[in-house]
């Protein structure tokens, strides 16, 4: 992805003047950023900075106090089937009585409607997605038997069967093993090479340059946003995390 092509097209995602509050306490405030077409973007910021909240506001789960969000130039509900959202792994009960393939199949539910039959074509999709995340042998396992990394792969597989153009992932690398992290990055880069756009909430500064080409710094409001090459600077890291982390970056 070169700088030139990303500026040619209009942004896939445009967030304008977003603020969100729980009860009367604002969580994020004055958030403005664009995600260019075909980017692999990291949303970076300290705990409680409002990264997940921003992502939830984008997919209309979190009511917004102010602001406007455009995806492919439309509102979310008009382009819902072009977007895949992967919630935090910890947000669900992994003791739920379903198997791996059941969870992945949930990705096609929106296209099935109320009583639409699950056809061999859908199962083929499920199996293909499981293969892409390296979980073919686990299709029939109960999800409670999986490790954290494997659970994250299942969530990613569910997103893959949605066949979206924009993937929004909340902390896809939280609590996963090194092999899984590699596997997920490979899948995401593969998606990017097919022209999909990816936005992931991320918290590991050391891997930003290796994984991503676009970055959004957020700490309650936007600190900076743009290409990793230009914006991933010590100054912006300082501004986002405060002075403490600044010294850590030097160690890195």
């Amino acid at each position: 992805m070169t700088e030139l092509t990303s500026t040619e097209k209009s942004p896939v995602l445009r967030v304008n003047g977003l603020s969100v509050s729980y009860n009367s306490d604002p969580v994020v405030y004055s958030v403005n950023f664009d995600i260019p077409h075909g980017a692999m973007s990291a949303i970076i910021g300290p705990n409680g900075a409002g990264k997940s909240t921003t992502l939830k506001a984008v997919v209309d789960i979190q009511p917004r106090l102010t602001g406007q969000i455009e995806i492919f130039g439309q509102t979310y509900d008009k382009v819902r089937n072009r977007i895949s959202y992967v919630p935090q792994r910890a947000s669900v009960d992994w003791d739920f009585p379903v198997t791996v393939q059941d969870v992945v199949l949930m990705g096609v539910y929106p296209t099935l409607g109320l009583l639409g039959r699950v056809r061999p074509m859908h199962w083929a999709k499920v199996m293909e997605a499981l293969e892409r995340v390296g979980m073919t042998g686990f299709a029939d396992r109960q999800i409670g038997q999986l490790s954290g990394g494997q659970q994250q792969r299942v969530f990613l597989a569910r997103a893959l069967v949605q066949d979206a153009d924009l993937y929004l992932l909340d902390e896809p690398f939280a609590g996963v093993d090194a092999a899984t992290e590699k596997a997920i990055v490979k899948v995401l880069k593969d998606l990017q090479s097919k022209g999909k756009t990816i936005v992931a909430v991320h918290h590991d500064l050391t891997t930003v340059e290796a994984y991503f080409d676009h970055i959004v710094f957020i700490n309650r409001s936007i600190v900076a946003a743009g290409s990793v090459a230009r914006e991933f600077t010590e100054e912006h890291i300082n501004q986002t995390y405060g002075r403490l982390v600044a010294s850590q970056k030097q160690v890195i």
Binding site: D25, S30, P46, N47, A49, N219, R220, N238, Q239, G242
Partner: peptide, 15 residues
């Protein structure tokens, strides 16, 4: 919030 405050995390930047 970005330059002065000793701890950058979780403290309200009450803009």
């Amino acid at each position: 919030t970005s330059q002065m405050q000793a701890e950058g995390t979780s403290v309200d930047p009450l803009g």
